[in-house]
Design a protein around this nucleic acid. Structure first.
Lengths: 231, 231
DNA sequence: CGACTGATTGACGGGATTCAACAACCGTGG
DNA sequence: CCACGGTTGTTGAATCCCGTCAATCAGTCG
């Protein structure tokens, strides 16, 4: 969520005046490794990232997916150590801030503190929704909810036009995000296509029945504190 | 997590000088209803709470459990609306602060801001761990992980002595916390008792094999930024 | 064209759910 | 003191959603 937008010009300028390092990254590139120290805070300028962890039994769970303008990992940036792996879903561009600089800015500018804190609170909201998704919905519901959430977030970021968008995830990754296997995701997606809910083609998702998809996923966008409609 | 402890005396005093309302509450009492406005921030002084939501299909998912000294719902307190129901697990005592007072204090005292922000970040860590738990572990692993997490948090709060503690949850509630049914939780607990991992009796959980339990739950306490040992 | 990654399909097995009934425990009140 | 209703815990049988394994197909790229 780009919470910096509603800031006063002065605050925006102060933020943009921070020294940072630009970094172009490829798809699949690991940004932060689980357990590594993280002296810097990251803003995602372009592309998509995801945070995940692999258990000893080999199973992997994706904890969150980030879209442009998100801060994918304020947590480890401020706690000091990464507890998840942060990786690129697509090629992209990052801005790396030194944690101490950000700390100082946050100290000096309450508006920025509020914006970042708010961003953090939204992260919790989304994470809680993922717990619900993985814990209490069946395969169709989980996928439907994921697709709805992604659409909403993209829309609020101005990255969604019409009723289709690019979901840059393989079925393997979708499976790891919703706690299923790729095989079952595949079958479920087929079923949803047959039902006329969605249409997919090479990473492009087209929602052909919004009401039906939202109903299937029991989707209530209230947890995304975002202006109700803009598209 | 009581992150206020390491604060300077001056900051502690400022916090404690805030006007607040004390509230004694019974077990099962609803503190905050999903969708309601929340003008106040809550600190849990005694007892346990949990945050949960019920889906349209009737399934319920518990998103988090809170122990004394936690702020169970900074999120809705600061975002303005509750997206989950907050309810007492046991009888307890709450301190209700006006959100604006807390905001002001946070503005005036960077140390308190840091403490609360840190608390928020820990909440995210735990929430992410729950996603992993519910998404990628089998029944035994989920229960084991839940028990380990609870023990660690209680220990860091000074509420754990020896190898047993009170887990104030029914099997129904445990099931809703880890995305299973009460029936399956029951059978799995029996299996774990037979394996000699734990011993349970009326809400009291006694861990008889810490290593085994941690291994079963693939538990790595790193996500709880807590001093490694104190007991 | 081969090598690779990702999507698709089929057969089979298993962990978890469902439904139902029953037992154990609790505080309450006659 | 015991009957009582309500909650929680326990058990069994049948079912099903999803996982596993493995093979095949499709698209991309050097």
């Amino acid at each position: 969520m780009n919470q910096l937008e509603p800031l006063a010009q002065e605050d925006r300028d102060a933020f943009l005046a921070l020294p940072f390092r630009l970094k172009e990254v490829e798809a699949g590139q690991v940004i932060l490794d689980e357990g590594s120290d993280t002296p810097s805070c990251i803003e995602l300028l372009a592309g998509f990232t995801y945070r995940h962890r692999t258990l000893r039994n080999g199973a992997r769970q994706i904890i969150s997916v980030h879209i442009p303008d998100d801060f994918p990992d304020l947590q480890s940036g401020l706690l000091g150590t990464a507890i998840h792996t942060l990786q690129m879903l697509t090629p992209g561009r990052l801005a790396l801030f030194r944690a101490e600089d950000l700390q100082r800015l946050v100290f000096e500018r309450p508006a920025i503190r509020n914006a970042l804190w708010r961003e953090t609170l939204i992260d919790i909201s989304i994470c809680g929704e993922w717990v619900i998704n993985v814990g209490r919905r069946d395969a169709r519901g989980r996928i439907a909810h994921l697709l709805c959430e992604f659409a909403m977030r993209l829309r609020s970021a101005g990255l969604l036009e019409g009723d289709s968008y690019e979901l840059p995830m393989t079925q393997d990754q979708i499976a790891d995000a919703i706690g299923l296997t790729a095989v079952h995701v595949n079958r479920t997606l087929q079923e949803m296509r047959r039902s006329g809910l969605i249409y997919t083609e090479r990473g492009i998702v087209k929602v052909t029945n919004w009401m039906g998809l939202a109903a299937l996923g029991d989707f209530n966008p209230q947890y995304l504190p975002i202006e109700p409609d803009r598209g």
